[in-house]
């Protein structure tokens, strides 16, 4: 960016010319790599999309491009018995689950970030430990508990109810963020006569909006994507299936109709992707929060 290079482009010094060429080559190199990488990330979506719109016959061939566009495949999938139920169940699970998680986790995260009490480190360690725990570790007794004691198998309640009692990852994430809010703000509010709870609601929550949005998104996605939970608790009752679980059985019922399977896949992916475009910022901030602010 030398001044000479801009004012008199004709009389470039050899050194400036080399620098410019290096910069150009660098640009070309970086962007070719980026395009190659983009192909790796995008092409699967393209193939899913193209196959979803092929005819039954063509989807079994090695063709990559549809001869004719079968948009009705999407409709066929949508009208498959059960598909709408899976949607509703998934929304219920993800929606209610997210709401309950926020309600229960925010106070806990606040206490962990703000209060000094004996055993705080033990609590924090337990939160991290449960966060890292594969759900399979406790599934055997949990299943017996829900199925045999409470007779709630065949529903999604065994997945939703626990979220009313906090989710470790959400607590951890919120606490990490709440630590960054200066203590003075809250203290000022308390001087004004606010109780701890009021201070949380009036002062802290508005400031923690980005973290809350991130936690909500993560939890929503977790529920939306969950396969193991519905497999354990809902599999025996098709009326309680979610999209992730139903999608697999859809493939089972349409053994070879890759076009319909891919159309269904597309319809399961679509909401998450659309949500991403609306909430891109919250997302990226959330991911960053998990890793960087440790």
């Amino acid at each position: 960016m030398t001044a000479t290079a801009i004012s008199s482009p004709v009389t470039l010094t050899p050194a400036a010319r080399t620098a410019r060429r290096t910069r150009f080559l660098h640009w070309v190199g970086v962007h070719s790599l980026a395009i190659a990488a983009a192909l790796f990330f995008v092409l699967p979506f393209v193939f899913i999309f193209l196959t979803a719109l092929m005819s039954d016959q063509q989807a079994l061939t090695r063709d990559l491009w549809p001869d004719s566009w079968h948009w009705e495949n999407l409709r066929t999938v949508w009208e498959t018995p059960g598909f709408l139920t899976w949607w509703k169940n998934t929304l219920l699970y993800a929606g209610l689950g997210t709401a309950l998680t926020l309600l229960s986790s925010i106070p806990v995260a606040y206490a962990l970030a703000r209060f000094k009490f004996r055993g705080r480190n033990v609590v924090l360690m337990l939160v991290i430990a449960t966060m890292m725990l594969p759900p399979q570790v406790v599934i055997v007794p949990m299943y017996l508990f829900w199925a045999k004691q409470l007779h709630l198998s065949g529903t999604l309640w065994p997945l939703i109810i626990p979220m009313a009692f906090t989710d470790a990852f959400s607590v951890f994430l919120l606490r990490q963020f709440l630590l960054t809010i200066p203590k003075d703000y809250v203290d000022a509010a308390k001087v004004d006569g606010c109780g701890e709870f009021k201070a949380l609601v009036r002062i802290v929550l508005p400031m923690a909006k980005p973290a809350i949005a991130a936690v909500a998104l993560f939890q929503f996605f977790y529920c939306w994507n969950d396969y193991f939970g519905p497999q354990i608790y809902a599999s025996e009752n098709p009326a309680a299936w979610t999209l992730s679980y139903g999608l697999e059985s859809f493939k089972g019922a349409h053994h070879t109709n890759w076009n319909l399977t891919m159309a269904a896949t597309l319809l399961v992916m679509a909401p998450v992707i659309i949500l991403f475009f609306f909430a891109q910022k919250a997302f990226i901030e959330g991911v960053t929060l998990t890793g960087v602010k440790g």
Binding site: A37, A38, P44, I48, M269, Q280
Partner: peptide, 24 residues
């Protein structure tokens, strides 16, 4: 564009993504 393209597959639900790869 690149950031979105690189990030998006992370969001694909695991069952859907796996099924797509089984097809690909």
């Amino acid at each position: 564009f690149f950031r979105t393209a690189f990030y998006l597959p992370y969001l694909a639900p695991p069952v859907a993504a796996t099924m797509a790869f089984a097809f690909l």
